[in-house]
């Protein structure tokens, strides 16, 4: 199936490109738009982005794989990202990750069979004063404990 933006996304794409002094600069927002529409950045999506951005596919591939926030594979509805860097580690981040693994019965980089959760560890998210913390999709969850993290996950359907 050929990858193509919906009419609505196409309008957004044009508005994004018009906003920048140079078209290349719109690459990250355009990739966000693509990820929003297609769920993840597949090779076909990269090819499509390369066409509409007038750049080689290799450049798109380079950008997509350089940044951590573009997914090249399908992920769960809720992407759990537990911070593992020193301030969170000092506050027990490993125990939080352990509690999540145990509850969801998945390891790092894995998705629950029902497609509800994907679990990752990430580096510092600038929330060290309220450690340990995690990000789920766009939202931060701070001051986690082994107990409250389970309750938080129960609320994410």
């Amino acid at each position: 199936m050929a990858v193509k933006f919906s009419d609505e996304s196409l309008k957004k794409f044009e508005a994004i490109v018009a906003r920048y002094p140079q078209k290349n600069a719109a690459m990250l927002p355009v990739l966000y738009l693509a990820q929003q529409e297609f769920g993840y950045i597949s090779p076909e999506v990269m090819e499509y982005v390369s066409q509409i951005m007038d750049v080689p596919v290799a450049r798109v591939l380079g950008v997509v794989t350089f940044y951590t926030m573009f997914n090249t594979k399908p992920i769960g509805r809720h992407h759990i990202q537990v911070c593992r860097t020193l301030p969170c580690a000092l506050a027990g981040a490993e125990r939080i990750t352990g509690a999540i693994k145990e509850k969801l019965k998945i390891g790092l980089g894995e998705t629950t069979p029902d497609g509800r959760f994907t679990l990752s560890e990430v580096e510092c998210l600038a929330s060290c004063g309220t450690a340990p913390m995690m990000q789920v999709n766009d939202d931060y969850y701070e001051n986690l404990t082994e107990k409250n993290v389970g309750e938080l996950l129960d609320r994410l359907k």
Partner: peptide, 27 residues
Amino acid sequence: LILHRGAGAYICGEETGLLSSLEGGKG
């Protein structure tokens, strides 16, 4: 004034890495 979102890369805090990123490339 344009708000531009990065996409997850510590190196983009370095000013020239940030500019490379803002130009639409790897940081």
